[in-house]
Nucleic acid binder design. Structure first.
Lengths: 201, 201
DNA sequence: ATGACCATGTAATCCGTTACATGATTCG
DNA sequence: CGAATCATGTAACGGATTACATGGTCAT
């Protein structure tokens, strides 16, 4: 289970389940997320395994918090997870599966709307990532040489996230132009039916 | 549930559960996949809803096949799914979560090995995607103008998949250079301790 | 006092993987 | 004969989402 290891990673500095959820919402959310319904039971399971330990602390607002921290066993487990090499999940891209079959609609306008919405949705994520990245880069205008190891790796992760999403957005813009040209050709075929021959197979 | 809709999309041409699994293995596998254990029960559920209907056909090799095809109800459901706009799942990238926390190891060699393996794994997928794409493009050297709607959209999907993965591979290569420079600086700090002052925060 | 936020938790449900069971055909 | 491929299915398990329950504080 990867969630256990992701939480273990975040518990390098002690935090409660509530804190961890908040961290998912702000920043890590682009790469991973989880709901309370999964977080709380998982933390208990990790505690049973001896990877983390929790102590109850009074909270100024609301009920007492349970703040978890990694044990030495947990730290060893976490480092083993890192050194085990990249964990590549079977990612599922429903929107690409949709696009593959969009041709069945024979409606280029619909395809364009689809690409437009895709572009807009991804731009939101891109903007958030770009903000996070520039937050790091204004503090370190000479690049990574002034960053410590922790920040350097966080910066790398932000970079690769931004690159991949920007590549998809660029592709969206390019496809819009391709669609315009294709629609041009299609309408010319209708208005001038005595041209060569239409490309239907 | 997206799997139902993905199967529905694929059943534009009739197929058995076994056929659908084979389609996942070859091509669609980069964007979506499913196991028999999920495919067969899902097909039955879709049949109960009236989205598809199956008829048993004798098979030359092995037991009789159940070939499913979309009903008109299923086709309407499928088109509604397409027109509902891009379905963006909460993608989970465990390897980015790993990378974020890799700084804790304070071991640049380990980071480099991680990036190397990431690059190699992704290159496999890239090569397969590139092959599929060139298969389309050697039949259509003038670009999309000679493709019908179906092929055009399949070509778009292959393109965006390739672009995104290539962006990540390019980033890997760039990071390797960054790491070399960083290691250079780190070793110089050790051999010439009387330089400016080291960048630890 | 109403709603927003703090904080933890359980239960129902669903999605997905793995393992297993069955049995026919074909090729070496 | 044994292995590979064809073909369908069930059961057990694990992972993830959603909904619900509880109850405190704080600001409007």
């Amino acid at each position: 289970m990867s969630l256990e290891h992701v939480l273990l990673a975040m518990l390098g500095t002690p935090a409660s389940g509530y804190d961890l959820k908040a961290q998912f919402e702000s920043g890590v959310r682009f790469f991973w997320s989880a709901e309370f319904g999964q977080i709380y039971p998982t933390l208990k399971a990790m505690q049973r395994k001896g990877w983390i330990e929790g102590r109850s602390e009074p909270s100024p607002k609301g009920p007492p918090r349970i703040v978890y921290s990694r044990t030495s066993v947990g730290t060893r487990e976490f480092h083993a997870w890192l050194r085990g090499g990249p964990v590549m999940g079977n990612e599922r891209f429903a929107w690409i599966a949709q696009l593959i079959h969009y041709g069945e609609l024979h409606d280029l306008d619909a395809t364009e709307r689809f690409i437009d919405e895709l572009s807009r949705k991804q731009s939101f994520v891109r903007d958030a990532l770009a903000d996070a990245l520039s937050g790091v880069e204004i503090d370190h205008p000479q690049g990574d040489s002034t960053m410590d190891d922790i920040l350097f790796h966080e910066w790398l992760a932000l970079q690769v996230g931004l690159r991949a999403i920007q590549a998809r957005i660029d592709w969206c813009e390019e496809v819009k132009r391709t669609i315009h040209a294709r629609r041009e050709r299609a309408s010319r075929k209708v208005t001038e039916p005595n041209s060569e021959r239409n490309g239907k197979r």
